[in-house]
Design a protein around this nucleic acid. Structure first.
Length: 299
DNA sequence: CCCCAGGTTAACG
DNA sequence: CGTTAACATGGG
C-alpha cells in the first residue's frame, strides 16, 4: 500500500536533496530514515500512528505517501500538511537572506554549496525542547543515543519492512516515568528533572507552541522558556530556531557555531561572543539561517 | 589523566 | 556584579 495523501508546492530556493543530505548526517537518528529519494517517519494522525513517506517526484513538488496506517480524515490530513510545511519551513521566502548574505565571504560560498537548504525544523514543542535539553553540553553522538533510548522506552513504534519507526513520546509518557528511571537511561539528574518539568507544563496546558507563537515578540518566548529551570538562553534560542520558526533566533554561545566559524575562517582559536555578534550584525533577522548554514558546513 | 562536547545552575568572592 | 565547579558520558 502506498496511497498519495497530499502534495505540497515547494517555494523558490528550496532544495529537497540538500534537506535530505542534512537529515542523513547522523546514522544515530531514530525518528526518521532517509534514503536517496526521500524520508520516512511515523507521525500521529487522528491519534493512530501513520507511516508517512515524503518524496519530490518533480521539481517544485513534495508528495506525502501513506505507507501504513488507517487513511486519516480530512482535517487530520490538513494537520499533517501543516506539520510537513513546518518541518521544512516551506512558508518562508528565503530570497531576502540570499540577497543579504550571498556576497559575504563567509556565508556566500555556503549559500552556493547548500543552495535551497531549509532549516529542518522540529515542529513538536515537546520533542524540540527535549532534543535541546538532551543536547546541552554533551557531544551530539551521545545526545542521539539518549534520544533513541527515550524513544525506544516510552514512544509508540511500528515495525515496517524490516525497520522500526518511533514516535517521540508524549509528555504524559515521560511524566509516568520517574526521574530515577530516566537517569537509568544515563540522563544527568538535571536533564531528567528539566524534561519532566517541561512534560508537566505541557501536559497541564501551561506551556504550548501556540501560546509561545502568540506572544508579541520572540524575546517574550525566550523569556518564558528561560523562566523554566534547566532552560537557558541557548536552549530557548535553539527551540526558537527549530520549532518556533524564528529566523532571527541566534544561539550565539553555541560551541558548534564557534567551531564552524573557527574552522571556516582558519582561526587559531574560537571566536568570542562579541566577535560573533559583530560578524552577524549584517544578517539581522536571519541569524538562525546563518547559524544553520554554518553548522551544515561543519558536520 | 586531561580537555572538549550543539549548557545551566548554584555557590562562591 | 564575574568566576567556577558539578553534572554524565564518550572520544581524542
Amino acid at each position: 500500500m502506498s496511497d498519495l495523501l497530499f502534495e505540497l508546492p515547494l517555494p523558490e530556493l528550496f532544495n529537497w536533496e540538500a534537506c535530505l543530505d542534512y537529515m542523513a548526517r547522523s546514522p544515530l537518528e531514530c525518528l526518521y530514515r532517509t534514503d536517496e529519494e526521500g524520508v520516512t517517519r511515523l507521525l500521529r494522525g487522528d491519534g493512530k500512528p501513520l507511516l508517512i513517506r515524503l518524496v519530490s517526484p518533480e521539481p517544485g513538488l513534495l508528495s506525502a505517501l501513506l505507507l501504513d496506517g488507517e487513511p486519516p480524515a480530512e482535517d487530520a490530513v490538513a494537520g499533517l500538511a501543516r506539520y510537513i510545511a513546518d518541518w521544512f519551513d516551506l512558508d518562508r521566502d528565503l530570497r531576502p537572506f540570499y540577497e543579504l548574505a550571498g556576497s559575504d565571504h563567509l556565508l556566500g560560498p555556503l549559500l552556493e554549496r547548500y543552495r535551497g537548504l531549509r532549516i529542518v525544523g522540529i515542529p513538536d514543542l515537546f520533542e524540540a525542547l527535549c532534543w535541546a535539553i538532551l543536547g546541552q553540553q554533551v557531544n551530539l553522538a551521545f545526545a542521539y543515543r539518549l534520544k533513541a533510548r527515550i524513544a525506544e522506552h516510552y514512544g509508540e513504534s511500528l515495525l515496517w519492512a524490516g525497520h522500526r519507526y518511533h514516535l517521540f513520546p508524549e509528555p504524559e509518557a515521560l511524566l509516568a516515568a520517574s526521574e530515577e528511571e530516566l537517569c537509568a537511561l544515563q540522563l544527568s539528574r538535571g536533564k531528567a528533572r528539566t524534561i519532566r518539568t517541561v512534560a508537566a507544563l505541557i501536559a497541564g496546558g501551561e506551556l504550548s507552541r501556540e501560546e509561545l507563537l502568540a506572544l508579541p515578540h520572540p524575546e517574550a518566548a525566550e523569556a518564558r522558556l528561560t523562566s523554566i529551570r534547566g532552560i537557558g538562553p541557548w536552549t530557548a534560542r535553539y527551540v526558537g530556531m527549530r520549532c518556533l520558526r524564528d529566523a532571527g533566533a541566534f544561539p550565539v554561545t553555541d560551541v558548534g557555531l564557534h567551531n564552524a566559524v573557527r574552522s571556516l575562517l582558519d582561526m587559531d582559536r574560537k571566536p568570542t561572543v562579541p566577535e560573533l555578534t559583530e560578524m552577524f550584525r549584517n544578517w539581522r533577522g536571519w541569524e538562525a539561517y546563518a547559524t544553520f548554514y554554518l553548522w551544515r558546513a561543519l558536520y
